[in-house]
Amino acid sequence: MERIPIHLLRFILLAFVQIFLLKNMGYYNLSTPFLYVLFILVLPFKTPNWLVYLAAFCMGLTIDAFYDTLGLHALACTVMAWTRIIFISLTVSTEDRETEPEPGMSEMGFRWFLIYSFTLIFVHHFALFLFEIFRLSGFGEALLSTLLSTIFTLFLVVLSQFIFYRKKSR
């Protein structure tokens, strides 16, 4: 509870970076980074389900407002939030959920974090591109963009974990 301001700050910072920096980056429209999903990735374990959904939805809407795609990112984030809830309930024991504050790399280990973030980012990007193209015939195109963008985003997510979160736990 006392960490709410930190999450709010993270929300604003990530949205800011996404809108003013990463929006202009990309590799021929094939690979586009969406670093803002980091906010949903590292929400604390204790966050109730409804709050996860609400936070993800708000984040998506904020991005949508600046990307002029109202509903698209919100939808992808909702799908991602659901994946997050399922993934955590399957792989993290109740004990760990009590003791560890949030699913970061320093708390959960490199390997777990990599699988966790890859799954969630992949689901998010796939939903995003599929609904952006909005045709079943564009399935292959969506899958290719998803894979390339997932690699880009994952790289940035892992990098940010190395930079910001390592010192705190040691």
Binding site: F57, G71, L72, T78
Partner: peptide, 11 residues
């Protein structure tokens, strides 16, 4: 949440 965002997307 999915229906809300899908509704927004469509409309």
């Amino acid at each position: 949440f999915f229906l809300i965002s899908f509704g927004l997307l469509i409309s």
